[in-house]
Design a protein around this nucleic acid. Structure first.
Length: 301
DNA sequence: GCAAGCCTGACC
DNA sequence: GGTCAGGCTTGC
């Protein structure tokens, strides 16, 4: 699952393999992965040259300029769950679920977008539109200051796990690194951000940065689908302490790792290293009742 | 049937 | 505004 370390690895790969390349053409095989009109997307990008590749959180942005050096435009990429961007020889047979091809001019290579579950999106946009999307995201997780981090926790009563996953607060964490950071900090996924002790909040701040830095250094984590630009998997899997290790012994204390669902996401934690303190154990009766009843669909009724 | 990121919409 | 469930999708 591409989270910040995986997206950053892809960005670095694009810098190496796609920078200053001109797109000879843009072919879309599955318009569903394009935000907006696929024909417009293809027409606007074809013939342009990749000038830079930036990232905020899990969002990638390729800056492209036309031949006349007119206003640059942007190719925004969200990989979703199973999205893969690769740079491969044009003659390489198309893998199943390849939705977009962008062959380079004067090079035998091309960029391909493949995405079996099609949760990812490619979007053609202006600088203003890109800025809008970036502005809607909280600070990139490795960049967030302690002041912003602690301020955003104030008064928050929902689960810390959901808080870490909220891209408007800080951007880049997904399920893997949220679980890993909470383990690193010794905090239970249901703890309340606004009620964390100062020491715990500080541990979490450091844990987020540490876990992400390590994962970036190891080119990310590959579960099923993630690969980098060259098709290589990441190397962080052996360093995972809790994620997808339900029932296995904690690497710190030996207790069996547990799995619970928090905010609809599976959450893995060590019951001994991440004790259930600093949060209300009693749910309010109203909320408990709401959770018991499946909500009715609003459409179609 | 579950996993995931992101969006929408319901509820307080 | 905060919070969270549900839906999308398909390979395992």
């Amino acid at each position: 699952m591409p989270e910040l370390p995986e997206v950053e690895t892809v960005r670095q790969g694009l810098l190496k393999r796609a920078l200053r390349r001109r797109l000879a053409a843009v072919e879309v095989y599955h318009p569903q992965v394009i935000a907006g009109q696929a024909s417009e997307f293809a027409q606007n990008l074809a013939g342009r040259r990749i000038e830079s590749v930036t990232r905020k959180g899990k969002v990638l942005a390729l800056e492209l300029v036309g031949k006349n050096g007119a206003t640059p435009c942007y190719l925004m990429v969200r990989l979703g769950m199973t999205g893969q961007l690769t740079v491969v020889p044009q003659e390489m047979p198309l893998e199943p679920h390849t939705h977009v091809r962008m062959p380079f001019e004067k090079s035998g290579a091309e960029i391909r977008y493949r995405d079996p579950r099609r949760f990812g999106r490619l979007r053609y946009c202006s600088r203003e539109q890109l800025d809008q999307v970036f502005a809607s995201l909280g600070p990139d997780a490795p960049e967030i200051t302690p002041e912003d981090f602690f301020r955003s926790m104030k008064g928050r009563r929902g689960a810390i796990k959901g808080w870490l996953l909220n891209q408007r607060i800080l951007s880049g964490l997904g399920n893997i690194y949220a679980d890993e950071a909470l383990f690193e900090a010794g905090i239970h996924p249901l703890a309340q951000p606004g009620r964390l002790a100062q020491t715990a909040a500080r541990r979490l701040y450091r844990a987020v940065k540490k876990v992400l830095a390590r994962a970036v250094a190891l080119q990310g984590t590959s579960f099923r689908d993630y690969i980098d630009i060259e098709g290589q998997p990441g190397n962080f899997q052996p360093r995972l302490k809790v994620y997808q290790r339900t029932g296995e012994p904690c690497r710190r204390c030996g207790r069996a790792i547990r799995r619970i669902v928090v905010c609809g996401r599976s959450s893995h934690f060590c019951p001994k290293c991440q004790p259930r303190t600093h949060h209300l154990t009693a749910a309010s009766p109203v909320r408990a009742a709401r959770q018991r009843l499946p909500r009715r669909k609003s459409a179609g009724l």
